[in-house]
Write a protein that binds this DNA or RNA. Structure first.
Lengths: 343, 343
DNA sequence: AACGCGATTGTGAACGCTAACAAGAGGTAT
DNA sequence: ATACCTCTTGTTAGCGTTCACAATCGCGTT
């Protein structure tokens, strides 16, 4: 019945505000504000009365008014490019979870194309909203440079980067992940290990190619078979068709699972057997990868955890004004059936 | 220089506000407001002066203040559950695109578990933000019922539903999509066509099962082989292992591409050839589906378009206060290599 | 000449909240 | 008792915008 009277009120009148609660509890609006904001100097009895009044009226504080006077919005902006891909989508999810747990709203902006202008534009979009911080999920090399241009006055965390003077970074250790993959192939006895790389204007694309080279060199092996794809299954397929004809390597380290899928498809069509003829290792460990033909050995990245870490960094930056830093999440090798010893 | 003097005037570096622009242009703050809001009754010369002043000062209007007085936030809330999946993620993207084009911010909330409480809680979260409308991407049967409970006073569009008295719906025509898939198999000459269904507490899970039954019945065929999975590749795999042993159907209509992937994997392991022994049709057409072994015949849903349509409905609802309605997007059959005539 | 009317511009008051300061109550030390 | 704390509560003044209304201007009509 209290709820009924409440609903009637809501239908007819405006929502209750601080002063309505204050009247009801017999205190000043400022005291109510103190209760709502958990200020220490409120007596237990007063707090009780106020809380009761809040509950009875179904009071909820008005974000806009609060935001107007405090100049902060309790909102985190998330700026992303390939947001529908498995990795970014899950990172976004991790950010959202951690943000909402911390009482923040999450606003998103998806880049249609990655460029300095688009990044700056989206950044402005967030400034208009006076967000308290920005998480950037744009895995391109130019991202950091573009962000460095704008001194925003709010914390910025860039996923998948090491950060710089102005921007914090949170990333999965690509070097370690690549090492796990390549070392696994070396341990199986492979000596000629090629790499299907991602685009070289992507941070991870570069990092994995670099890691591959370095891992081979530490083992005293040649790193001379590198083909660049565009992350898509189709590019993996096209590359696979060529490699099926011209088989120089006994093992391939592929930049991501989707290209690996395309590659497997091409090999299957061409009668190249995996892993008997060629071993294949992917990167990402998407949920489907265990059901490829054959099930894919790959490197797992915990994207959701990455997102949560982002918010850790963000929250301490907001609270303590702490500058940029770099946080690293460890990848993990998942061995399935696409790798074996060379024939 | 003028800018400097301005900045000195306010001893802090506060952002310029309406009145600063007004002073500069030699008009009242209200006139500036009119220019900013494109009110008709402003003379061309005044408008020019004001626009110049705005540009010089780099004025941007304060969302919080505006929101406080207008009681609207220029924000659309998107409530989603399996937001990292291909479909929902792309719908989200479509919504974001259309929303930003229309000058709206997009706020998101991801459900950790689907329940009445969680939906109401997230809805409250959005109300706190005084969003102007809510898009719901929660493809479960209970969604509509939960939403109907809250009379929010703002438009709500539920993706993948037909809507009801209170809520608008935007969906891909599941019935038509299913018909395309099943008819394709019938046309190939199949007479015993099974269905691997999605969970029956999902709207699409139910709709596709129903469509499958109906399509078979119209053709005078039996609809008695139905197994329920959970959308995952793994469930497809488990089901596939059983079906491989007990082969009663020559063709299978699978509820989504991921289960189809698992199924293909299980059949491959068991030596069941696709499409020679069994034809398989999926649903969704994810980007990878063309690279399965074999490439999957499936039904394409344009999720991004779905999201855009959502915003169409939302915008007219906001503008014209129009009630709920239902919009349908057409699916499309994509024929690849997982289907053929029965042996 | 007086009037009226639309178009343009200005004036004050909200919107609901927090920050800063003021004031009162009650206790302790001088 | 006086002064002086600390703890709690109240008062006032914005934050930057829009809304409702008032005022002014230009111009055609009676």
């Amino acid at each position: 019945m209290t709820q009924n009277s409440h609903m009637t009120q809501r239908n007819e009148r405006r929502l209750p505000r601080l002063e309505d609660v204050a009247d009801r509890a017999g205190v000043s609006h400022q005291t109510v504000s103190r209760v709502v904001n958990n200020h220490p100097n409120v007596s237990a009895s007063t707090r009780g009365k106020v809380e009761a009044a809040i509950a009875e009226l179904g009071y909820r504080r008005n974000t806009a008014a609060r935001s107007l006077v405090t100049r902060r919005s309790q909102t985190i902006g998330v700026l992303g490019s390939e947001m529908s891909q498995y990795g970014p989508a899950n990172t976004l999810l991790g950010v959202e979870q951690a943000a909402r747990d911390a009482g923040y709203f999450v606003s998103i902006a998806a880049l249609r194309e990655v460029s300095r202008e688009a990044i700056l534009d989206a950044t402005m979009h967030f400034l208009d909203q006076s967000v308290d911080g920005i998480v950037v999920i744009v895995p391109h090399s130019e991202t950091l440079a573009a962000l460095a241009e704008v001194a925003l006055g709010i914390p910025v965390v860039a996923v998948g980067t090491q950060g710089n003077d102005a921007v914090s970074g949170v990333m999965v250790d690509q070097f370690r992940g690549t090492e796990l993959a390549v070392q696994h192939l070396i341990d199986k006895g492979h000596r000629r290990i090629g790499h299907i790389a991602g685009p070289q204007d992507w941070i991870d694309g570069v990092a994995r190619a670099k890691g591959w080279r370095s891992a081979l060199q530490s083992a005293g092996l040649d790193a001379d078979l590198l083909v660049e794809g565009d992350w898509s299954a189709d590019s993996g397929y096209q590359i696979g068709r060529k490699l099926a004809e011209d088989r120089t390597a006994t093992a391939l380290f592929v930049g991501n699972d989707q290209m690996a899928l395309g590659l497997l498809r091409a090999f299957n069509e061409a009668g190249v057997r995996v892993p008997e003829d060629v071993s294949v290792v992917g990167f990402d460990d998407q949920p489907e990868s265990g059901y490829f033909t054959p099930p894919l050995t790959t490197v797992r990245q915990d994207f959701k955890e990455l997102g949560r870490r982002c918010m850790d960094v963000m929250l301490t930056a907001i609270k303590e004004g702490k500058g940029p830093g770099s946080t690293v999440v460890e990848p993990e090798l998942v061995v399935r059936k696409s790798t074996s010893a060379p024939a």
